[in-house]
Computed example of a mutant assay.
Amino acid sequence: MSALRLTFGIDPGLTGAIVTLLDGVAGPMIDMPTRRVDGWGEIDARALAVFIREQRTAHPGAYVSACVEKVGAMPGDGGTSAFRFGETSGGIRFTLDVLGVPYTRAIPAVWKRQFALIGKDKDAARQLCLQRFPEVAHMLTRKKDNGRADALLIALYGEQQVGGRESAAALQPRACARVCGEEAA
């Protein structure tokens, strides 16, 4: 059955992930696709685009959106590290723009407060996702799957933000025309 609404949650960074919510239910997810260029790791924008296109193709006519964690340089990061992290974040947003996927940004302190994660360790998000989304427990078995858990909660946060403004049914015809490049019925 085709979903009416696809929401991608993206935890940027080379150890992040991208997760799909299908009408609020956890769906396909992948660790952030990366590649090596001149000895440096960077996101593989092509693989990211392929994943998004596959999900969109599997659910024709669905309203598609994304929520990307709004990131910045961390105190103590060197200039090179901060620049490379910015490149990664920009590459993700550029990929969404090229694909015509509207996105919002989630400030870490805000989305984490929404899920009572402020002041908790990195594994708390994974534990919360295991309770909230038991259907994907097999994808969250390792402690290092915290990027997937963060992306899942970012998607849920983004969906709640969009859901508060307009329903998916009201958005569907207009969104499909804008996102899929098709004529609205």
Rank of each mutant, 00 (worst) to 15 (best):
A58Y: 04
Y63Q: 11
I43Y: 00
D150S: 05
Q114F: 02
C176A: 15
G76E: 09
P108N: 11
S81V: 15
V136I: 14
G61C: 04
L6Q: 06
P33Y: 00
K120I: 14
L4M: 15
P12D: 13
G72N: 09
D145K: 03
C176H: 11
G158W: 03
A155G: 07
G147F: 06
A66F: 07
G181V: 10
T141R: 09
Q114A: 10
R132C: 02
V71C: 13
R142C: 10
G90V: 05
G13K: 04
R84H: 07
L156T: 14
G147W: 02
D77A: 12
F8R: 03
V110E: 09
L171T: 03
V162L: 05
K144P: 14
K120T: 14
L21D: 00
L117A: 04
T88L: 04
G16A: 09
K112I: 12
V68Y: 01
T20Y: 00
I10E: 10
V25F: 08
L96F: 02
A17C: 05
I118A: 05
V25E: 07
G147M: 09
A170K: 13
L22S: 10
R165L: 10
I52L: 04
F133Q: 02
C129E: 05
L21F: 01
D44Y: 02
T88G: 04
W111D: 06
Q161V: 14
G61K: 02
R126T: 11
R53L: 14
K144G: 15
M29I: 11
A137F: 00
P60C: 08
E54S: 06
R46Q: 05
G39V: 08
Q160T: 13
A155P: 04
R46F: 08
T95C: 04
T104M: 11
R56P: 01
T20S: 00
T95I: 03
V19A: 05
D97A: 13
T20M: 02
P102M: 08
E166Q: 11
L14Y: 03
P173M: 06
T80A: 14
D11M: 14
A3R: 00
D44H: 07
I154N: 03
M32Y: 01
Y157R: 13
R36N: 15
P28D: 07
A106C: 11
V101S: 07
P33D: 04
R126E: 11
A155E: 04
D150W: 02
E87S: 07
R178S: 15
R113L: 14
E42K: 06
L14H: 05
I154K: 00
A185C: 13
Y157W: 13
